[in-house]
Design a protein around this nucleic acid. Sequence first.
DNA 1: GCATAACCAAGCAAAATGGTTGGAATTAAA
DNA 2: TTTAATTCCAACCATTTTGCTTGGTTATGC
Lengths: 161, 161
Amino acid sequence: MKLSTKGRYGLRAMVDLALYSEKETVSLSSIAARQDISEAYLEQLMAKLKKAGLIISSRGAQGGYQLARPADTISVGDILRALEGDLDAVKCPGLSAEGCQTGDLCVTKYVWKKINESITDTVDEILLGTLVKESKKAREKHSTISEKKNIRESCSAKKEK
Amino acid sequence: MKLSTKGRYGLRAMVDLALYSEKETVSLSSIAARQDISEAYLEQLMAKLKKAGLIISSRGAQGGYQLARPADTISVGDILRALEGDLDAVKCPGLSAEGCQTGDLCVTKYVWKKINESITDTVDEILLGTLVKESKKAREKHSTISEKKNIRESCSAKKEK
DNA sequence: GCATAACCAAGCAAAATGGTTGGAATTAAA
DNA sequence: TTTAATTCCAACCATTTTGCTTGGTTATGC
């Protein structure tokens, strides 16, 4: 019942990309460096995002990635589905079909349906654009404090996992 | 991002137990048989449910399991947490603490929080008692049709996975 | 042409999943 | 008092998934 690093890293990469690719393209290595993710691994995630049509790339020198469409038209659900595949927490054969109404055998499908819906609803509701705006706001706020308190240090010390 | 068989089997077992243990205790083997789950595996799930205080057991001949409290006071969340552990889809160090407000690095935590909350809310809202009532209703409905159409067969044919 | 990029395919260790195996302890009934 | 039924317990194990790494190949701007 855990979201894998694919989803976690990938969403961070997309936010990063949205922040830095407004005019120019952004290289994989720069995202990897800023987000502290292995380049080779991130590459695989970018491939998935590209295949899903969320980002575009240009090869060769000065090449890199950009969002395929405005950040306001990309939902977190789009991103997570591209990376993790189907987000359904439970795949029950009876969920879409009619079958399995046989009493106690399948009341649980009601539960799985509710869980799936709640996840889908929440991730589809949050837009990349919103995250970008939040991020910019947080950055401004932070830069005014950062001279006095070095929060950054205490933060990056807590490595994920 | 998938619920494991622990959660799926375990919830089914709990519904089964609630349905059949109103007066007498119910043996592991009878639940396993009705729900078509391996006895030895279900045993491990029952151990978790017992440890979590959701069911009680009596050993020896004629022994078995019963709910520890009324089905209306047990939520699906209680059951799933007992079986799967923590239901948080993402464990971010910055989620509970103050840290990681450093701009783009951590806007994603807002997303993880929302996802976690939506899952928790939905599973805590559904009570075992409700499922039991639904199940009884479905069973009645079914028994009136079952003589003409044998839905049961088409259902059990679709084995999970 | 060469440095800088994206692209591609495979391999691989560690962890998690979904069980199985083989018993030991307890208890009601015969 | 035996015996059958039952929970309890502790390993073990095969397979799959995860989270990467390795070692290239193509494409392109300067």
